[in-house]
Design a protein around this nucleic acid. Structure first.
Lengths: 122, 122
DNA sequence: TCAACATATAAACAAAATTTTATATATTGA
DNA sequence: TCAATATATAAAATTTTGTTTATATGTTGA
């Protein structure tokens, strides 16, 4: 890996929102709207940070219908080490708020799905 | 370590000059003027980057007379791992130029010292 | 004490990164 | 096909970071 690649990875890691996104992805893939809800912010902001993380290969994406799902991409030993040791450093309480909002949003999505299902059954 | 500390470390690592300074320090302590010569640049620029590296605890300094000597500070496991794995990623050829200038400068310093010594003996 | 030297710090400027706002694209279900 | 939804992209505004220039501080040897 060249100096520029290492540099790009550290730049990607040196932003609060991006570190938190990575930590949220620790528990599995999330779509853009999940993250928008978790951070209680606007969608282009999240897309911007996701694109930077994706460019450096720290995360990967997968399209399904209207949705883009993002997940950790630790196929490289250096990146895997970085992610693991970073997660180890950061206490879970530091993303408590985001986790709460995320959980609430996912719960709401489930409820909405249920409601739709009920409509169909009528 | 809190999220903000991790963030500060990654920010410190996400600059070309600073990564190169760290790599040059791999071989032992250097004073500010050594680094100024190695990068063929102005002294405040080097002092600026050294202050950032020092703030995050990635390096430490030691004063001796007019000089400030800087060296790696790997007293923390996370930082030590970061430094080691970073150095491992970056090829030596990427700081070839800086190393050459540094070697030349140190050689010149030695010669000057010799000349002074000879003057004293007269 | 004074000149020369090494370094630090401050202020002004330039460059880069982030956020916001607006708009485009693509998918889905009515 | 059309409206609604999820996401991406572009442009403008803002913030942060890095560089340059000027100046201050502290040490050393004459």
């Amino acid at each position: 890996m060249a100096l520029n690649d290492v540099l790009a990875i550290y730049k990607a890691l040196s932003d609060e929102t991006r570190l938190k996104i990575l930590k949220l992805l620790e528990n599995g893939e999330l779509c853009v709207c999940d993250l928008v809800a978790a951070f209680n912010t606007v969608q282009p902001k999240i897309s911007f940070h996701l694109s930077i993380l994706k460019e450096t290969g720290l995360i990967k994406d997968r399209k399904e219908g209207k949705w883009s799902y993002y997940s950790l991409n630790d196929n490289n030993l250096f990146k895997r080490f970085l992610l693991l040791s970073t997660f180890e450093q950061i206490d879970d309480t530091e993303i408590e708020l985001e986790k709460q909002r995320l959980a609430k949003f996912i719960e709401e999505k489930k409820t909405k799905k249920m409601v739709e299902l009920c409509k169909c059954l009528k």
